[in-house]
Amino acid sequence: MELLILNGLVNGLIVGGIYALVGVSLTLLYGVLRVVNFAHGEFVIAGSFLAFVLFTSFGIPPLLAVPIAAVVFFIAGWGLYYVLIPRLARSDDPELMSFLMFYGVSIAAAALMLLLFEADSRTIDYTFTPVSVQVGPIYVSTARLVAFAITVVVSIALALFLFKTLPGKALRAAIMNPEAIQIMGVDIVRLSAFAFALASALAGVTGVLIALVFPAFNPFSGAEYTIIAFIVVVLGGLGNPVGALLAGVLFGLAEQMATVFLPQAMAQIVGFLILVGTIFFRPSGILGVRFKR
């Protein structure tokens, strides 16, 4: 039993790291742009498929796929921003309409991946040597450890970027007070495009990591990750990147522990209940600070 719990903790931490990244990118988007990316899970899974294609068609290992995914998704996100967002801002209720529009993006993206890769579940047949590493009394797959290391590095880099660099500070300022930042002479459109690109890049990288950590993915896996992203974002407080990182780890741990003690289906329901409960009883998230509203 203790071994099971220890296993749950270690895996919870690893999975939680991934959830943290999924959540932090979504929360950045919401915070800066006030759009709800319902297609976030599909963005993530597209990253997994990119890693899959790079490996199976070009023999590029997943580790190298990380920076490639970051660049590709950054550029794609930048472009997508200009196609979708400026027009959206003109509607009566951009926040709610964004939900609907990304609903469409989500359907279209899943359908596109279905056309390209078919409905079968995919796995990347890449193995590290050694396959697993002993951590205390338990064995953890090397792939998972590598993914975790990348998660930590990316999170730290993101935190440093947000808190130590000028563009990062501008992003945080935009989350806290979008009106003021425009008066300060910041080009909000470019900043938003950058945020969209950054969030997409993070989603792409997360997708690569998911291909390493989880056994398989298919074009319809996206919806699951969208829900997880929502749970993490709400738990961390809408628009709060630090909260999302923390909430991701917390939710990963909770979910993995739930699978130790509860049947699979119940564990899923727990996730939904956490989401509903948070919105009702602690709408500003675990940290209790609302960036805005």
């Binding site: 027009r87 003109r90 609907l100 529009m101 469409g104 899943a110 359908a111 279905l114 056309l115």
Partner: peptide, 21 residues
């Protein structure tokens, strides 16, 4: 038949962007 879902998604996007009302 294969493009059905894709077009439904794209139609949604176009609708929100160009005919939100």
């Amino acid at each position: 038949p294969l493009l059905n879902l894709l077009i439904l998604g794209l139609a949604t996007i176009v609708l929100v962007l160009f005919l939100p009302r």
